[in-house]
Simulated scan of single mutants.
Amino acid sequence: MAWDLIFGITNSFALLMWLILAFAPRSMMILTGLFYGGVGLLAFTYAVIIIPLMTGLINGGGAAADFSTLAGVQQLLSSPGGATVGWIHYLAFDLFVGIWVARNADKYGFARWIQIPILLFVLMLGPLGLILYLLLRFTRHNKVADAVMPE
């Protein structure tokens, strides 16, 4: 399987989706397109690859996946197929979180110039970007429950 090609295409596609999220107007049409056309397509690509990869129908996964040990996960991610599908997993979930952060930040009135660095952290460091946003969001609430519940 052409793992480098799949990696390159999905990586470039995700970067385009992030640029749209950061800089395009956030109309319902654009957000819907990012959600279904961005996250949905990445998730679909993941699903199309992971099932035959894990069952051995396509080459590139190495030995049978063992998610119960660190060694098993390392072995899976050390193969070209495992690394590619793992990266697509990150791309899909990080974009999903980025869309939530952007929509929520708009809802609570955070300016785009504040959002963009946080979105960059979500893109590059996933959970760290989410924590930064949640800490920022905490500054806009009087009650702790309002600051931490994802709406």
Rank of each mutant, 00 (worst) to 15 (best):
L41Q: 01
W100T: 06
A105K: 04
L21E: 02
Q74F: 04
I116H: 01
T84Q: 06
H89R: 12
G129C: 15
Y36I: 13
F13M: 12
T139P: 01
T10M: 14
I6P: 01
N104H: 09
L130I: 07
G38K: 04
G98I: 02
F35G: 01
V73R: 13
L95K: 02
G126V: 08
V144R: 02
P127L: 13
P127G: 13
F67C: 02
L77V: 14
G60Q: 05
Y133N: 05
A147S: 15
Y90A: 12
F13C: 11
F96V: 02
I30T: 12
L41W: 04
G86Y: 04
A14Y: 01
I20E: 04
L57K: 15
P25D: 12
L5C: 00
Q74T: 08
L125W: 03
L132T: 09
I30H: 01
F138K: 10
W113V: 13
A105N: 06
G82P: 09
I116A: 06
A43G: 01
I88T: 03
H141Q: 12
P52M: 08
G86M: 06
I30Y: 00
F93G: 01
T10V: 11
F23E: 07
V39S: 05
W3Y: 03
F138R: 11
S12W: 06
L95E: 07
L53H: 12
V101M: 12
A71R: 11
R112K: 15
T32D: 00
I99D: 06
I30M: 08
W87E: 02
I50K: 05
I50V: 14
Q115S: 07
P127F: 14
M17E: 10
G98T: 03
L76P: 00
D106P: 04
L31V: 10
P25K: 13
S68V: 02
V148G: 08
G86N: 04
E151P: 10
M149A: 12
K107E: 11
A63D: 15
A147C: 07
D146K: 13
F110M: 14
A111Q: 07
L135E: 06
I49H: 00
D106W: 04
G82A: 11
L31M: 15
T55C: 05
G86P: 02
I131W: 09
G60Y: 06
G40L: 03
D94Y: 10
Y108M: 08
Y90C: 08
I51T: 15
G8R: 07
Q74L: 08
T32E: 00
V48Q: 10
I131N: 03
P150Y: 12
Q75K: 11
M124H: 11
L34S: 08
K143A: 15
R103Y: 08
L132F: 08
F13H: 10
L76I: 08
A14G: 03
M28N: 08
F13R: 09
A111D: 10
D146Q: 14
N59P: 00
L120M: 14
I58L: 07
T84M: 06
L76N: 00
W18E: 02
G81M: 09
P80L: 11
T45I: 09
L128S: 07
